[in-house]
Amino acid sequence: MSKLFNLLKSFLLIELLQGLSVTGRYFFARHITVEYPDERTPQGFRFRGQHAQRRYPNGEERCIGCKLCEAVCPAMAIKIEIAEREDGTRRTTQYDIDLVKCIFCGFCEESCPVDAIVETRVFEYHGEQRGDLYYTKEMLLANGDKHEAQIALDRASDAKYR
């Protein structure tokens, strides 16, 4: 009996019609594609994009050259050299991040005791030559100066969860 029923079912193409009805329903569904350059998805305040070095409001750079970020970096993308500045403080003479190596895990940002190295919301950047994505201290500081308002806002939003 069930065999007969199955035969009838396949002869009447019932399962095929069910399949067609599914695609037919989706035909009228709203598409979920984000048409990227025209539309964007929202970003969270913990977004991990391109790196930046921050400064204090008086213009002094935050980084004290503790090398915690260099130590924690799983991709070994950070290179730091330090020296004593004339005023006796400990400062970096070289602070490079190779964005080609970087995996954007955010550990550097998390390990930093003075919130010097941060990851910004910038994710649309590119390099045209080898070495273009090797970011030096000057480039990182410039990045920080450019996006300081957004960076500070994001840190403030995140503060209560830390």
Binding site: T23, G24, Y26, F27, F28, A29, R30, H31, I32, T33, E35
Partner: peptide, 10 residues
């Protein structure tokens, strides 16, 4: 277009 719409894309 139709394949796209049926796959919920434009």
């Amino acid at each position: 277009k139709i394949l796209g719409w049926m796959q919920v894309r434009p």
